[in-house]
Amino acid sequence: MFDGDQTPALSINLTQLSGRLQERGALRRTPAGIPVLEFSLAHESIQMESEVERKVHCEMNCVVIGSQAQLLAAVKPGDELKVSGFLAARSLKRRMPILHVNTIEFVEGNKNGI
């Protein structure tokens, strides 16, 4: 089922996003003891659209599961991150996706914005 060698077209699900850590939930654990942290990322950038530069703002709800959740729990809101991961529905009933973060990069030394 999870065959890593083949990546058929219909299984592409990769999202990269940078932004500031906005809201952060309390670190919780699954019943098996694995740490889980939900947070939202405030993204701001300039992108090309129809050959025109435009400003982009958005907020992305994310979740990180495992040891990186503990790392993120120590980060202050406002700090800038680069994350990548995949999208999945929040639950069976709530189908809007949230970003499941696999890697987090902490962007340091630019406290004054971009």
Binding site: P31, A32, G33, V36
Partner: peptide, 29 residues
């Protein structure tokens, strides 16, 4: 003690790390 237990037959097993069907780690009591 991190177990799943049947209160009828006494069967018990460790709480799974992830969902046995879909692999989701974030299982909910």
């Amino acid at each position: 003690d991190k177990h799943l237990r049947c209160h009828h037959c006494g069967f018990e097993t460790a709480i799974p790390h992830a969902c046995p069907d879909c692999g989701n780690v974030d299982l909910q009591p």
